[in-house]
Simulated scan of single mutants.
Amino acid sequence: MTSSSRPARRRGRRALTVLVAVVVVLALLAVGFLVWAHVVMPGDRTAALKVWRDDRVSVQDAGDSVILRPTGPSNGVGVVFLPGAKVDPYAYLATFDGVAASGTTVVITKPTLNLAFFDTRSLATFEEHAPDVTTWAVGGHSLGGVRACQLATTPGTAGLLLLGSYCANDLSSSSLDVLSLSGSRDGLSTPAKVGAARHLLPDSASSVVIRGADHAQFGHYGEQPGDNPATVSHAHTDRVITAQVSRWAASLG
């Protein structure tokens, strides 16, 4: 072996060692991300069970989503709703219990990796679960709302519902019927952030601030890091959501 070949071999071994190290680090990062994504903020069991026992609504787990339907008269309106990042879809059963009881079908999706931005499925995928619905809207909480804004451009979508969220894409020239509910104590989708993005919604959009509500009160999953403590009860926030969303949904039909 010549003296010139030995340094070349050493460089080759070092390069291979670096490559293996990079692959290992990337693999560990990927595994760590998957573990992180699959650890969700669980829904409140008591609140969810109360909805299951409510004879005004029916609850169906369709595999890719959870569907709330009125057992009484339907208004023909449905909402495909995207959960916040890493929030259990069942955490929104109690949020929409009264809305479904009033006649609106709500399809709560189970996002890919529990993050709406990784879910590339179309609205039609979820709308197929309720063929009796004649008018569809899309909505979401937090990061789910940001993704809902993107899906709202789907032809045939009549409305957009934002709970503690705001758009990143411009919908100001659209004909969407928009309802945005935010909390004055929200520490994540803060009033300042919601206000700064208001120009991305149509002028006709309805914006309602629930005084004293925080970010986590748009679902039932306990406290959330970075949030501010609410100064009103969860029951109060639920009543406001039910009244506002039920009225908005009925106007779409």
Rank of each mutant, 00 (worst) to 15 (best):
S173H: 13
F218Y: 13
Q60T: 14
H199E: 13
G103P: 11
D132P: 14
D177K: 15
R211Q: 12
L160N: 07
S206P: 00
A148K: 01
A152H: 14
T190C: 06
D203V: 00
E223M: 11
G145Q: 05
F33V: 08
V18M: 09
A216Y: 07
A37S: 05
T153D: 15
W136D: 05
A152C: 05
G212E: 06
V245E: 09
R6D: 03
R11H: 02
L151D: 15
A100W: 11
A148Q: 06
R11N: 11
G72N: 05
L19K: 08
D170I: 08
W136C: 13
A196S: 14
A250V: 02
F117Q: 02
L162W: 03
M1H: 14
E223L: 10
T2D: 15
S189Q: 05
R9L: 14
L171F: 06
R53H: 13
L93Q: 05
A158D: 12
G156V: 06
S65L: 01
R211P: 07
D55P: 13
N75V: 11
G183T: 01
S65T: 09
L161N: 04
H215D: 00
S175H: 12
T153Q: 15
W52A: 02
A197M: 08
A37D: 13
R45S: 04
R56G: 07
G164A: 12
G159M: 04
L160S: 01
S165L: 05
H129A: 08
P70Q: 03
D119E: 08
S175R: 07
A168P: 06
A8L: 14
V22N: 03
V194Y: 07
R14V: 01
D55T: 09
G72D: 15
A27S: 12
D44S: 10
S102C: 04
D119S: 09
T125L: 05
G219M: 09
G98A: 12
V146Q: 12
K193E: 10
L252I: 11
A37K: 12
P202F: 11
V57A: 12
A30I: 01
V77F: 10
T17E: 15
G98R: 07
P225A: 09
A152K: 00
G43W: 09
A158W: 03
R185E: 13
R13P: 03
V240L: 05
V31I: 07
S4E: 04
G76Y: 02
L113K: 00
T242W: 01
S5Y: 00
S174Y: 11
Y221I: 06
L181G: 11
G76K: 03
D186P: 03
V40E: 14
G156Q: 07
R185G: 02
W36R: 06
R9H: 05
V240Y: 08
V138Y: 14
I108R: 10
G63H: 08
A216S: 11
V18W: 15
W36T: 12
V209W: 15
T135Q: 11
L163C: 06
A213H: 04
A27Y: 00
L26V: 06
G222D: 00
L26S: 04
T134H: 10
F33W: 13
G222R: 15
T237H: 02
